Computed example of a mutant assay.
Amino acid sequence: MRLAAKVTAGVLLLDQVSKYIVVQGMHLDQRGAIDVVPPYLNFRMAWNRGVNFGLFSGETDWMRWVLIIVALVISLWVWVWIAREPHSRRVNISAGLLVGGALGNVVDRLVYGAVADFLNMSLPGWENPYSFNVADVAIFLGAVGLVLFTGKDHRANEG
């Protein structure tokens, strides 16, 4: 449980610091785009009012609060689940990634009214139209980790 808390705090801090540096420090919110290592890594400002890829986005304030509540409920559920019984190191790390990422995006919705997405990765000849952030990567890795590493068979093999 202590490991999950450390990972949660680390992800939340890394996410918020990276957003502050890029969005406000580098003024990406005003510039719109910065080529870092084109086309592989670019900063492209996107304010996401929905979930992944802008799904369920809306300009209404109530949707913002619905998404905040959903993220907090899922985070709380994962936290309670992880605290109820001992889990493997990989499960604790995965839970910390998921909760830290979710809380990072909640902070954005509270502060900015939308999630600050800025990482964009493309390939030569293919321009990715979507941006994401550190919290999104953590949520994805945490969810995959929880799927892969939970269950009695996995705990028995790690013990």
Rank of each mutant, 00 (worst) to 15 (best):
T8V: 07
T8Q: 06
V11T: 08
D15Y: 08
K19A: 00
I21R: 01
I21P: 01
V22C: 02
V22E: 01
V23E: 00
Q24R: 06
G25P: 07
H27T: 02
L28K: 04
Q30W: 11
R31D: 04
G32N: 11
A33Q: 14
A33T: 12
I34Y: 12
I34W: 13
I34S: 06
V37Q: 05
P38I: 01
P38V: 01
P38W: 08
Y40M: 10
N42S: 14
F43R: 07
F43A: 02
F43Q: 03
F43E: 04
R44T: 15
M45P: 02
A46C: 08
A46L: 13
W47F: 11
N48Y: 11
N48D: 08
R49I: 00
R49W: 05
G50I: 00
G50A: 05
V51M: 14
V51A: 15
F53E: 03
F53Y: 14
G58E: 05
G58S: 15
M63N: 03
R64A: 04
R64G: 03
R64E: 05
V66Y: 10
V66H: 09
V70I: 15
L72R: 08
V73Y: 10
I74Y: 06
S75V: 05
S75T: 07
S75E: 09
W77V: 12
W79A: 14
W79E: 03
V80N: 07
A83I: 03
R84T: 04
R84H: 14
E85H: 14
E85Y: 13
E85Q: 15
P86Y: 10
P86D: 09
R89W: 13
R90L: 12
I93L: 11
A95F: 13
A95R: 10
G96K: 06
G96H: 09
